[in-house]
Design a protein around this nucleic acid. Structure first.
Length: 172
DNA sequence: TGCACGATCTCG
DNA sequence: GAGATCGTGCAT
C-alpha cells in the first residue's frame, strides 16, 4: 500500500474519477491518529467548457488551484455550511477536478466534508506530501456504475446529463 | 457596496 | 417542503 503520486492525478479527470473508486482515502488527525476510508463515489468536472465545473466561470481566486498540476486539494464552502472535498487532476492550465461524494458508509459530499473535518486551510494542500490527507493505492475497480452528476441543473441539458458520476458496485 | 444563489443535509 | 448560513461572482 503506497501513496498515490502527482503522476496519478495528472491523468484526465474521468480516468482519475473511475480509478479512485476502491482506493483508500487517509486522514491523519491533529492527535496523530489515522483513519482510512474506502472511496465509494466520485464525480468528474472537466474544464472551462463544462458548464457544471466552477472553472467555467474562468480563472478566479477560488478556482485558481484547479489550474495547477493534479494532486492538489480543492475545497470550497457550499450553502454556507458544507465543505466539498475535490482533488485537482490533469496538467497545468487544464482546470479539472474530481469531487469525492462518498467514503465507506458515508454517502453525500456534504457529509464527507464534515466527517473529514475539512475547512479552508486544506485549499491547495498537495496530496503527494501532505501529512494530513492523502490517498493510498489499491487495485483498480472494474465493477462500478455511472450516473448523472448531482445538483447541477443550472448547467444546461448538454452538461447536466453527462454520466460523469461514478459509484462503486459493492455487490460482489 | 449590495444581492442572489449554490457540486447540501436535516428535520418535520 | 423549508430553513440553516456565508463566500463568491456579478450587478449597481
Amino acid at each position: 500500500m503506497y501513496r498515490l503520486s502527482n503522476n496519478f492525478y495528472k491523468q484526465d479527470a474521468l480516468t482519475v474519477a473511475q480509478k479512485l473508486l476502491g482506493k483508500i482515502l487517509v486522514r491523519c488527525w491533529e492527535d496523530s491518529t489515522v483513519t482510512r476510508y474506502l472511496i465509494t463515489e466520485t464525480e468528474a468536472y472537466l474544464g472551462e467548457e463544462d458548464l457544471a465545473c466552477h472553472a467555467s466561470k474562468g480563472r478566479t481566486k477560488r478556482t485558481e488551484i484547479m489550474y495547477s498540476e493534479g494532486g492538489h486539494v480543492y475545497v470550497y464552502l457550499i450553502y454556507g455550511m458544507y465543505w466539498m472535498l475535490n482533488v485537482v487532476t490533469g496538467i497545468v492550465d487544464n482546470p479539472q477536478a474530481v469531487l469525492i461524494r462518498g467514503i465507506d458508509k458515508i454517502v453525500g459530499s456534504g457529509k464527507v466534508g464534515r466527517e473529514l473535518k475539512m475547512d479552508k486551510s486544506f485549499y491547495g494542500e498537495n496530496m503527494e506530501d501532505s501529512d494530513r490527507i492523502w490517498i493510498e493505492d489499491a487495485p483498480d475497480s472494474t465493477s462500478f456504475k455511472t450516473a448523472p452528476r448531482v445538483g447541477i441543473d443550472y448547467a444546461g441539458d448538454e452538461w447536466k446529463d453527462k454520466p460523469w458520476r461514478f459509484i462503486l458496485d459493492n455487490t460482489h
